[in-house]
């Protein structure tokens, strides 16, 4: 087994790289071809910008509200198609927008409560469907987003490792220059402590680099797609309960409607009342399930939710003059 130093590895990389080059004839051929194309171009066009995905999205984004308005005006197939879209599908954002607009245009409390109940059931169904989804089907955009976040996390940990390294170097210098046994002991302890901190952070960096999108808990993945929707779900839940409570507590004796004579048969038979009561109880039970799912989700992924208390790392026992 040969032991290689960093310098030897660097040298091997250099040598391997330098051996790779274009032959004289290839280079000449490629250049002639390139210059031939350049000289026939009438004007330099900025294909780099037009091919840039970001610019295409910026162009498309303002059109989305127009699409929604058109879909609602036409009231037809696209809305129906979007309604069955699940997180990650191309039409899912459309589905969400349509739901927000439906909320705004629905005024009657009973209809609004019904709408919220429908949305809540859909969220629950989506959550269940996503838990059963094959990880290899995650959309490319989400995989790319995961990679981006992973690289940012690695960069942050790398920066912190660099900082610990700088501090450790300073204390190693102090250790080397220590005049008394007590000073040497104190600096040694600090250097050892910093070694442990460095090792933990490198371990963390390894774990992040090795992480795979398929290992991330389902709720964290959903957060990528749904963004603010964890908050929305709780709002939804509160709104539904509020509506149901308002319906229960509503005092109809003072409203204008209450003064009008009730049409015959409006309240229905005793059986009708019992059925309606059972339905309301069933709805409340479903809302409780949705609320629990949302709460669990929120606790896991939301930065706004108070974090669970953790055992703090013990403070290093450094002498005051070294702090």
């Amino acid at each position: 087994m040969t032991n290689y130093t960093d310098k030897q590895i660097e040298q091997l990389i250099r040598q391997a790289g330098r051996r790779v080059q274009l032959s004289v004839s290839d280079k000449s051929q490629l250049k002639n071809k390139l210059m031939g194309v350049i000289n026939t171009l009438p004007e330099r066009t900025n294909t780099y910008q037009t091919n840039n995905l970001f610019n295409q999205r910026r162009f498309a984004m303002p059109l989305i509200p127009l699409v929604i308005a058109l879909v609602i005006a036409l009231g037809g197939g696209t809305a129906a198609l979007a309604d069955s879209a699940k997180p990650g599908d191309a039409l899912y954002p459309i589905d969400q927008w349509i739901e927000r607009i439906q909320e705004r245009i629905t005024q009657a409390p009973e209809a609004k409560a019904g709408l919220f109940a429908k949305f809540s059931e859909e969220r629950l169904a989506e959550l269940k469907a996503l838990q059963e989804l094959d990880p290899s089907e995650w959309p490319e955009a989400m995989k790319a987003k995961f990679e981006e976040h992973k690289q940012d996390a690695v960069a942050r940990v790398a920066k912190s490792i660099e900082r610990v390294n700088t501090v450790q170097t300073k204390f190693e210098e102090k250790l080397a220059a220590a005049k008394t046994e007590a000073e040497r002991e104190a600096f040694q302890k600090i250097v050892e402590h910093l070694d442990e901190v460095m090792a933990k952070r490198e371990e963390r960096m390894n774990a992040i680099e090795a992480s795979d999108i398929n290992q991330i808990p389902i709720r964290a993945k959903l957060r990528e797609w749904r963004g603010e929707s964890a908050k929305e779900m709780l709002e939804l839940h509160r709104e539904v309960l509020k509506q149901l409570d308002e319906d229960d507590n509503e005092d109809t004796t003072d409203t204008e409607d209450a003064k009008l004579p009730l049409p015959e048969g409006l309240l229905g038979t005793d059986q009708d009342v019992a059925d309606a009561t059972a339905q309301a109880a069933d709805l409340k039970a479903k809302m409780a399930l949705v609320a629990q799912a949302a709460q669990d989700w929120y606790e896991q992924v939301s930065p706004w939710y108070p974090p669970k208390p953790t055992t703090p790392e013990p403070e290093p026992n450094w002498p005051p003059h070294l702090m």
Partner: peptide
């Protein structure tokens, strides 16, 4: 180093240089 294929590397090389020429305004 990445492509491991001479022909693909040369094709991509031409594409990159052409793109560089067309993007020089930026």
């Amino acid at each position: 180093f990445r492509l491991r294929d001479d022909e693909q590397a040369k094709d991509l090389l031409s594409q990159i240089w052409l793109e560089a020429w067309q993007s020089l305004r930026r």
